[in-house]
Design a protein around this nucleic acid. Structure first.
Lengths: 108, 108
DNA sequence: ATAAAATATAAAGATATGCTTATATTATAA
DNA sequence: TTATAATATAAGCATATCTTTATATTTTAT
């Protein structure tokens, strides 16, 4: 079961606007770090460190695909996480725009 | 609707073990500050400051009763809050013990 | 084998957080 | 009205967090 530590870490991970935006974006589709850098207009190390926090809190999973690392939503440990995701502001247009600008990564 | 700011504030408020314990305790019954001081073994200002954070995040409500201020659960803005509360470790025995020690406040 | 691209890690600085001590409010009781 | 109890606020300090710059790692392409 969940203990105090895990529950606090979960909420700390979500206590940041940038990470909330990242999770909202991942609802639309899996994204790699360089795509998130474009979407968030942040430096690459900043994004990587946010992803580490989300990963440590078990909210995202990573998979290596060629030279890219793609992140996807997880959160299966937290029964309220799915409900929470639904309440996030919609960011799907930002991903449409990314594609329109030809910045979506194509693997092989 | 909820915006990024409110959602981040909500999660920041829950990103602390002490505040998680407080919310778990409030599931059993409303409590005043001096009772929480006893239960948490913390100084009164420390508790008051935690309650302010929870109040600002709209997770608790306060009501004055004589010289005491009682706090109760709220969180009605956040549809996932009720589900989350269910996952907190049980603390009801701590309140039983408080009563056994004669430290429950009686108003009037 | 080397170079380039994507990502991760580390160090450093600025801001935020949580606790303590001291002081101010507010409400009851004497 | 003065004293006391409960709570809140403020200042100060230690620790944590977030961002940046610099560097390391990993994978692919040449």
């Amino acid at each position: 079961m969940l203990d105090w530590e895990q529950l606090a870490e979960y909420h700390k991970a979500l206590g940041d606007k940038t990470r909330l935006r990242i999770l909202s974006l991942l609802r639309t589709e899996d994204l790699c770090v360089c795509e998130l850098v474009e979407l968030l207009k942040m430096t690459q190390p900043a994004v990587s460190q946010h992803m580490r926090k989300l990963k440590n809190a078990k909210l995202v999973k990573e998979r290596r695909q060629g030279k890219w690392v793609f992140y996807s939503l997880d959160g299966s440990m937290f029964p309220f996480f799915q409900e929470f995701l639904k309440t996030l502001p919609d960011t799907s247009k930002e991903i449409e725009e990314l594609k329109a600008n030809g910045l979506k990564v194509v693997c092989d």
